[in-house]
Nucleic acid binder design. Structure first.
Lengths: 298, 298
DNA sequence: ACCAATCAATACCTTTAAAGTATGAAAAAG
DNA sequence: CTTTTTCATACTTTAAAGGTATTGATTGGT
């Protein structure tokens, strides 16, 4: 049996006249007659009662008509859904995320993607950089977000934005009266840094920049994530350096200050994905990334 | 698109290897390759990723596989159901019934039919003889039950059984002491008969038999149905004549007596159906009728 | 580094089956 | 009683699915 048989039978059942159905199907009458006979023979069931004025359906015919319509609509739906999946409009996107990215940038970016692709289920997985790389290789995620990436042969790393850094101080701290600060201030106060976890990471980036300026800062604490770090600053454990994303998180007593002399003091946010991944959902996501960059290039 | 495409795609998706799938489908590899290409072209979607070790599914391919399996099982189910409908094993049977038939014979007969055809929905409609004929002509029912039928050109009438008649009397009545009675007794007591409604009917059958015996009975009441008639006998309104079916209905005080001299005093129960009806459900029902007659011919 | 093995893709031919044309048979309508 | 309508059959054409042989690409084992 063929989908053609179903189409033909539906036409005949709706017209109750083989000739008219043939007209509607843009074929001639004899092949239609034969296809229906074939169908009846294959099912070993009489579907039509031939009368001199046309045809009428048997009970089995009525039943088959109903089933045929079901099948037809399921087929149409299957085609539609598959096409949409092929355009990256339907399906699932697994994303690996990390600490500070989730505060500001990633939600904005995902919003942008979901506006265009409402039927793609986005599933977020919190994982470290190394876990992300492992998960990408096992195809457990399609995209990962990270800050500091060393190049890898099988993974593409694409810069999303370069964020300036800010100083986080408590408002009881003498620096909090300034509108901006110099990098050198970092050498004079104990620093709270983050995250823990595999190096190199944001801690190393900060140390690297301090090195460029010719000093090694005093590290008071290294904590798991930015939120904890800022909380410690609010508790008087020292000062901290954070990417711009974090300043939307502002607990009472915390002041964020830009650096005035630290023009190159920035940190990257990148997304990573398999070099060999050609899936339309990833393509669609990268289009959203580009759109995001356009909006934030100023 | 064709069901063949679905079958082929499922095979490929399950084997993840076009050559092996071709083997399983008992065709050679090149046509299978082409059919899959055709499918992808038609859907305008990449379903497979070709690797040197076989193929793997894209997300769209996964989606299409799921849909294809759904369609396949729906098709199988459609074929199955249609075949069963064609054998009269599935569908709906509308039956017209009348008063006394429902007390005994019809339930037994329907039981027999439903044992063999559990998935046929039997719908009963209480209607008079003329309503049954009208309903048959309009195909609102497939079978009717009746007692007295005049022959009709478009309707077949098939005898199911010939029931003996019984006398219904109250146990305070002098006749109730007998083990059997003579027909002539009917001339000596007021008769409760039934049903009302279009003639000729059971009333006329009783009068006809009395006529053969040379008398016209005194009719006390004609009531709508046998149950009412027997209830009136229980209330002392006279005696009544009922088909054997009715004697299963035995309210307190009622005694049923056979007639000893009335060997030909019987009444028919027949089923009627369209002469031009060739539906398998009717065929199946008539087989059940035959089985019933076999069981009750003694 | 090369050779054999594996697998999908392509080219070309054969076979199957669906569509078209012409016509027939049966029954209803005028 | 003829004309029309409608489905069925016989025969031909055409389209498409299947088969055979071969190529190209990649991997894995000497």
């Amino acid at each position: 049996m063929d989908l053609r048989h179903l189409k033909y039978f539906i036409a005949v059942a709706e017209e109750l006249n083989i000739g008219r159905a043939a007209l509607r199907l843009h074929i001639s009458q004899p092949p239609l007659t034969r296809q229906i006979q074939q169908l009846e023979e294959e099912l070993d069931v009489q579907l039509l009662i031939r009368t001199p004025r046309g045809v009428e359906l048997t009970q089995a015919g009525e039943m088959f008509l109903e089933e045929a319509r079901n099948i037809r609509s399921l087929v149409e739906q299957a085609i539609e859904r598959t096409k949409r999946a092929g355009q990256g409009k339907l399906g699932r996107l697994d994303i690996g995320i990390f600490g500070t990215g989730i505060l500001n940038t990633i939600p904005k970016l995902l919003q942008l993607f979901r506006d265009d692709h409402p039927d793609v289920r986005v599933v977020l997985h919190t994982m470290t950089k190394n876990e992300q790389i492992e998960a990408l290789r096992q195809k457990r995620i399609t995209v990962g977000f990270n800050r500091i990436m060393s190049p890898l042969p099988d993974i593409t790393c694409e810069l999303i934005m370069r964020e300036p850094l800010f100083l986080a101080v408590h408002n009881s701290h003498p620096l909090s009266k300034n509108v901006s600060v110099s990098v050198k201030e970092l050498s004079k106060h104990p620093l709270v840094l983050f995250p823990t976890g595999p190096r190199p990471n944001f801690v190393d980036r900060v140390l690297e920049i301090c090195g460029h300026m010719g000093f090694i800062p005093e590290i008071s604490q290294i904590v798991g994530d930015a939120v904890t770090g800022v909380a410690l600053v609010a508790g008087g454990f020292g000062i901290s350096v954070v990417p711009e994303s974090v300043i939307t998180f502002k607990p009472p007593g915390i002041v964020y200050l830009p650096f005035d002399d630290w023009l190159t003091g920035k940190v990257d946010l990148s997304c990573i994905y398999r070099k060999d991944d050609e899936s339309p959902i990833l393509k669609a996501f990268l289009i959203a990334v580009n759109k995001f960059r356009e909006q934030h290039k100023g």
